[in-house]
């Protein structure tokens, strides 16, 4: 464990807690894409299949449980909570996210480190995570007015993967056989998808104006 990875995990945890806080306290999910949340629940479900088979550390198991429970409860809140669901704007959240699932799965069948069920599901979860933010970014472009919590949520989500890239660089130079091209490339693609959001987020923060994405 290195500082970049710990910071990355904490930033990722913070993004989920910010989202849960928003939904739980103001009982609203306005501006949040249910599709992205469903994709994230699928990412964790397919990535943490080894939750009970491979014990790595208490930290690892605890964090996996937190991510699983939080991602599925966010989906539940938006879909079934009697008050929250009313603020879900399904007419705007129209990204065909199922079209992301199949290509990621097919790609995982072809490009993976080992052709086993667990490894293919793990690779699938990596590819899916790289594109899972797309419905949310599309929704932000559409709704234009981005409330602070949603902006912070997307920012933290992007920041966590950027910190992971620093972690991969650190591990590459400190651990002799640490080479995972699939992880690195999909993580890089994921971070690049946030690039323009980061730009506008930083601009709005610098000029102290409300965050607006160009149409």
């Amino acid at each position: 464990m290195n500082i970049f990875r710990l910071a990355g995990d904490m930033t990722h945890l913070a993004s989920v807690l910010v989202l849960l806080l928003k939904i739980h306290t103001i009982k609203s999910c306005a501006g949040i894409s249910l599709k992205t949340q469903e994709l994230y629940a699928l990412v964790f479900a397919t990535r943490y299949l080894d939750l009970f088979t491979d014990y790595i550390s208490l930290y690892n198991t605890l964090m996996k449980l937190i991510f699983l429970v939080s991602s599925f409860s966010i989906v539940w809140y938006i879909r079934h909570h009697k008050i929250v669901r009313r603020s879900y704007d399904k007419d705007q959240d129209t990204f065909r996210h199922y079209f992301l699932v199949l290509p990621c799965f097919l790609l995982a069948l072809v490009i993976n480190e080992k052709f086993t069920v667990k490894e293919i599901m793990w690779t699938f979860s990596l590819y899916l995570e790289a594109v899972a933010i797309l419905p949310q970014l599309v929704l932000l472009q559409r709704t234009r007015n981005i409330d602070n919590l949603t902006g912070q949520y997307v920012f933290l989500l992007g920041a966590y993967r950027s910190l992971y890239i620093l972690n991969w660089i650190y591990r590459y130079f400190t651990e002799p056989h640490y080479v995972h091209w699939i992880t690195w490339i999909s993580g890089l693609v994921q971070t690049l998808l946030y690039a323009d959001f980061f730009y506008y987020y930083f601009q709005s923060w610098k000029n102290n104006v409300k965050l607006e994405l160009p149409a």
Binding site: R5, D9, H12, D50, D54, I56, N60, M63, K64, F67, K114, K118, E119, W122, Y164, N167, H177, T183
Partner: peptide, 10 residues
């Protein structure tokens, strides 16, 4: 499972 199989990152 040998070491290389297990993914230790979240």
């Amino acid at each position: 499972t040998d070491e290389s199989d297990v993914h230790d990152e979240l």
